[in-house]
Simulated scan of single mutants.
Amino acid sequence: MTQPLTKKEIEDFNRAVAIASGDEGLREIADALTPEILENLSHARNCLDLIIEGWGGDGLAIRGYTSQMMGHLSTARELCEAYTSLALGAVEAASSEVGESEPAPLEALPAVAIVTIHRDNLEAVAGFIDQFLPAISKRGRIPVEQLWEQLRSGEVQAHIVWDTAKETAVALAGTCVVIRGERRIGEIVWCTGKDRHDWWFHLLTQLETHLREHLGCEGFKVVCRPGWKKHCQELGYRLTHIVMERDA
């Protein structure tokens, strides 16, 4: 269950905001995270309104709205904590240069954060995205500009895997939603990065959460290269097709 922020957490976040105001890289991350955080808080508020309106009525519905509200609040908090970790890392780096002592990093935070990018914020993080597109282009035989068009049009949504310790982007994934009958299926259509074993689990599980809770998906599909087969099967995916290709 999500707990209220402690005084220390509030102080840490305020310090993070102060540091970020003078760090261009952190500002770019903040611009990318803000819509996702605000969207989750908005959904949580809507759920709360429904709970209040239905109080004393359908207990099952209230329970469902409560579960959704807590999920949205939890996601918003995780994003805030990941951002706070990045900014505090910048504080520690700056302090070490002048010989000051700072508190140790927050050990409870995940090693990576999955940052979902709204298409309105693509330009703010274009530098992070550009470094991965050539590899996706080569493997998928899709021109880089066409990949950008998929992102700008909203056909594909970008997700950056951010290493919170190294403070750098280590991977990029793209997702879309397809309709099968009356079901919405979330597809991971491309992904590339380095040191996959450090982040693949976080990526797949958090993308599933995003697709399920924010886009209403009832199932998931991963379009991947053979090396991902084992990872997907560990999370319950099954092999349904084999795609064969040849040049004309």
Rank of each mutant, 00 (worst) to 15 (best):
L88Y: 08
L88E: 11
L88K: 00
G89D: 03
G89V: 03
G89L: 10
G89W: 13
A90P: 00
A90T: 02
A90G: 01
A90S: 06
A90E: 09
A90R: 12
V91A: 08
V91K: 08
V91P: 08
E92N: 05
E92D: 11
E92P: 01
E92Q: 10
A93Y: 01
A93K: 07
A93E: 14
A94S: 11
A94P: 00
A94L: 10
S95R: 09
S95K: 08
S95P: 03
S96G: 04
S96E: 11
S96W: 02
S96R: 10
E97A: 02
E97M: 03
E97Y: 07
E97V: 07
V98Y: 09
V98W: 09
V98Q: 10
V98M: 11
V98H: 10
G99W: 12
G99S: 02
G99E: 04
E100D: 14
S101T: 15
S101D: 14
E102K: 11
E102C: 10
P103K: 07
P103F: 15
P103W: 14
A104I: 11
A104S: 15
A104V: 14
P105D: 10
L106T: 12
L106P: 05
E107A: 15
E107D: 14
E107F: 06
A108S: 15
A108Y: 13
A108R: 15
A108M: 14
A108V: 06
A108W: 15
L109D: 14
L109V: 13
L109K: 04
P110T: 02
P110M: 12
A111N: 11
A111M: 04
V112C: 09
V112S: 04
V112D: 05
V112R: 05
V112A: 02
V112K: 00
A113S: 13
A113F: 01
A113T: 11
I114L: 14
I114T: 03
I114W: 05
I114A: 02
V115Q: 01
V115T: 06
V115L: 06
V115I: 05
V115M: 09
V115S: 02
T116P: 10
T116L: 09
T116K: 12
T116V: 14
I117Y: 01
I117S: 09
I117Q: 08
I117L: 12
I117T: 04
I117N: 08
H118K: 11
H118N: 11
H118C: 15
H118I: 07
H118Y: 07
H118D: 15
H118F: 05
R119Y: 05
D120F: 05
N121W: 08
L122A: 04
L122W: 07
L122S: 04
E123V: 00
E123G: 01
E123H: 06
E123M: 03
A124W: 02
A124P: 01
